[in-house]
């Protein structure tokens, strides 16, 4: 199993930023998929959620186009999908951080919002808070067992199924499921320990 390093993600994101206009065009596509992943996760109402194949394909396409343009093609589709999961994760975390910053910094504007908006606002902040807590817990997990953490993160953030992950990581589906179950346990405990 070859590694997808954080450095690589940083590199990719930086490349995207080298050409801000490209980045801007890509982002809506990415988020559109995130949205679908979100819907699917909600529909599955469980820990393991599966995005539609089209979603993955679309995200792939966007990235491959971009990568092709940059003349730095991906090693292969599987490698790319792992990268993709990491990028997704980073984007969601970035969003959660900004959402909270916005909440803290934008009080003045919020005063004009209606009650309903306030409620939505609180829910969103709570979710962002929780997402960031999960992120912290994932980081401790990463230090102890990187593979477990990656499987967990790819499921959580990119919505990959066990089958897809088995494919991507070249492991048995059963191993993926067991790693997920254990990773989830460790995550719960890390979350629990982090609680004041």
């Amino acid at each position: 199993m070859d590694e997808v390093s954080d450095g690589e993600v940083t590199q990719l994101i930086e490349e995207l930023r080298q050409d801000p206009d490209q980045f801007e065009r890509l982002i809506p596509l990415m988020y559109n998929d995130l949205r679908r992943i979100g819907h699917n996760q909600r529909a599955a109402a469980g820990f393991i959620a599966g995005p539609t194949l089209q979603t993955t394909a679309l995200v792939n396409e966007a990235f491959l186009k971009l990568r092709g343009r940059l003349d730095q093609g991906c090693e292969n589709r599987l490698h790319f999908q792992r990268l993709m999961a990491k990028v997704m994760r980073q984007l969601i975390i970035d969003y959660a951080r900004r959402q909270l910053a916005e909440k803290r910094g934008g009080l003045q504007a919020h005063e004009t919002l209606t009650e309903a908006h306030h409620a939505a606002d609180d829910q969103a902040s709570q979710d962002s808070d929780f997402t960031l807590a999960v992120e912290e817990a994932l980081k401790t997990l990463e230090a102890d067992n990187p593979r477990q953490a990656e499987i967990l993160a790819a499921t959580l953030y990119a919505g990959y199924t066990s089958r897809e992950l088995a494919d991507i990581l070249d492991l048995s589906e059963r191993t993926i499921r067991r790693e997920l179950q254990k990773g989830r346990a460790w995550l719960m405990i890390a979350l629990d320990d982090a609680r004041p």
Binding site: L34, R35, I37, G38, R42, D127, T131, A185, L187
Partner: peptide, 27 residues
């Protein structure tokens, strides 16, 4: 660990997916 591995985890997966969805809608 055993207890945690058999506890439902909708709580945090739901929170994360709602955040993801918001990120998507926002954009």
């Amino acid at each position: 660990l055993v207890v945690a591995s058999t506890t439902p985890t909708e709580l945090f997966s739901e929170s994360v997916s709602r955040t993801a969805q918001r990120a998507a809608e926002q954009r």
